Amino acid sequence: MNNKTALITGASSGIGLATAKTFAENGINLILCGRRQDRLERLKNDLKSKVFIHLLNFDVRDREAVFNAFDSLPDAFKRIDILINNAGNAHGLDSIDEGDIDDWDMMMDINVKGLLYVTKAVLPQMTKRKEGHIINIGSTAGKEVYPNGNVYCASKHAVDALNQGMRIDLNKFGIRVGAINPGMVKTEFSDVRFKGDSERADNVYRGFQPLSPNDISEIIYFVVSRPQHVNIADLVVMSTAQASSTIVNKEL
């Protein structure tokens, strides 16, 4: 994987941060994207002895900022071999009749439109070369719907559909497209969903061993390191204790 460059959105925490570390350990140069510049700087300092790193500080919801960021890439980073569409979030856990419209906008703008903006910005140089690999980070919420998950599940179902659509449309260019759909991963996800209610967030993962960001980053690396003729199109990953979004064995 030497001399490859990967762009990772949402690289300042969770799965994105873990993937950056795993890629760096395996010699993949990095374009790290996120809203929190201070965290990106710390991550760059941690990894810069291993690979070349460039930072892009923008919010995927901001279409103009996305395209401006890509236009600003120095020549050494203009070739992007791997795109990890990782940025995403959940806001609230309310029934549809009590849902907050601002929460709905946040989830659709980041999880769906942000993914589209970044992909649109990256694709021209991939289609021109007829080479590239796109990994969309989905969720088990894109495979089923659970109580009060309504709009979050809808956004991740959209990611599932886009993953399939991208794979079909980009087939003629030889671009590999696949999705990793994790179940419960212990990250800042629940802290964001419950808007800083740490007790409620901690309770989500209490009583069983959830997936870790590193579990997912190792799987992502496995996927992108397969030979060119191999495309892992769609992968669902859950901890042993989790059978579905609502069935978790907290005695394991």
Rank of each mutant, 00 (worst) to 15 (best):
G10Q: 06
A11G: 15
S12Y: 05
I15D: 01
G16V: 03
A24G: 09
E25K: 15
N26K: 09
N29T: 07
N29D: 15
L30V: 12
L32S: 02
G34D: 10
G34E: 12
R36T: 13
D38K: 09
D38L: 01
R39A: 11
K44V: 05
K44R: 15
V51S: 05
F52H: 14
F52Q: 14
H54N: 13
H54F: 15
V66A: 01
N68K: 14
A69K: 02
D75I: 11
A76H: 13
F77L: 04
F77C: 05
K78S: 04
D81Y: 11
I84R: 03
N89A: 14
L93C: 14
I96A: 11
I96K: 07
D97A: 11
I101E: 08
I101M: 14
D102E: 05
M106Y: 15
M107S: 08
M108V: 13
M108A: 13
D109M: 03
D109P: 01
N111R: 01
V112A: 00
L115P: 06
L115S: 01
T119P: 02
L123F: 06
Q125E: 07
M126F: 05
R129Q: 04
K130F: 04
K130D: 05
K130M: 03
H133Y: 05
H133T: 08
H133V: 04
I137Q: 09
A141L: 00
G142T: 11
G142F: 03
N148V: 07
N148I: 05
N150G: 14
Y152L: 08
Y152W: 03
Y152M: 03
C153K: 01
A154S: 12
S155N: 02
H157D: 13
A161L: 04
G174W: 13
R176W: 05
G178S: 12
N181D: 08
G183V: 02
V185G: 02
T187K: 10
T187L: 11
S190Q: 10
V192A: 03
F194V: 06
G196H: 04
S198W: 03
S198H: 13
S198K: 14
R206K: 15
G207H: 10
G207L: 06
F208A: 06
P210L: 04
L211C: 08
N214F: 04
S217P: 02
F222W: 11
P227N: 12
A233M: 08
L235H: 10
V237C: 07
T240E: 11
T240A: 09
A243F: 09
T246K: 12
V248E: 02
N249I: 11
N249P: 07
K250D: 00
K250Q: 03
